[in-house]
């Protein structure tokens, strides 16, 4: 569970759920895993299975929480709504699984590169803020960022060569 907690929780949060609802999705996902352990024969399919299940649970929770479910017109086309939801869950799961590879590559990258890429993309800090917090000259941020991204891409490529276009 420690290996996959970030993957599952991130799927829920990225659908726009708050921390309480994301916690419910997390619980529901691992409960589903426990009930279906015997059906998961290939360990390597587990990340995909978890992401799809978490996405389905998150979208179901959002649908149930929205008021328009009571609308008779929507109920008439519930099959379409559910089909759209399933397609969205699949797409979310693919993105989430891929993002998890990038996350692990970032952690493995470590050091100044991890700090810089985290500041730039996850924390969305400005160059001025990065100059101050990482004590890095303004002129070094751009070139360092490019070098770090290339290292990150190589780590990702090593673990997931089939997913890259280059």
């Amino acid at each position: 569970m420690d290996r996959f907690q970030n993957l599952v929780y991130s799927v829920a949060r990225r659908t726009g759920l708050g921390s309480d609802d994301a916690g419910d999705v997390f619980q529901a996902t691992f409960l589903a895993l426990y009930r279906n352990l015997d059906r998961i024969e290939q360990p390597e399919t587990l990340p995909k299975w978890l992401s799809v299940t978490a996405a389905r649970e998150a979208l179901k929770l959002k649908r149930n929480a929205s008021r328009f479910v009571d609308d008779a017109a929507v109920l008439d086309r519930l099959d379409d709504v559910l089909a759209d939801e399933e397609a969205s869950a699949e797409a979310l799961a693919i993105e989430a699984e891929d993002a998890d590879y990038w996350r692990r590559a970032l952690v493995e990258l470590g050091g100044r590169c991890e700090q810089l890429l985290t500041a730039l993309y996850l924390d969305e800090k400005s160059y001025d803020e990065i100059m101050s917090s990482l004590e890095m000259p303004m002129g070094a941020i751009g070139p360092t960022r490019a070098r770090c991204l290339e290292k990150l891409r190589k780590l990702y490529q090593r673990d997931r060569p089939e997913a890259l276009d280059s």
């Binding site: 907690q5 970030n6 929780y9």
Partner: peptide
């Protein structure tokens, strides 16, 4: 992927 953010439970 990085911009989408990662969330530890």
């Amino acid at each position: 992927s990085l911009r989408a953010g990662f969330y530890d439970a």
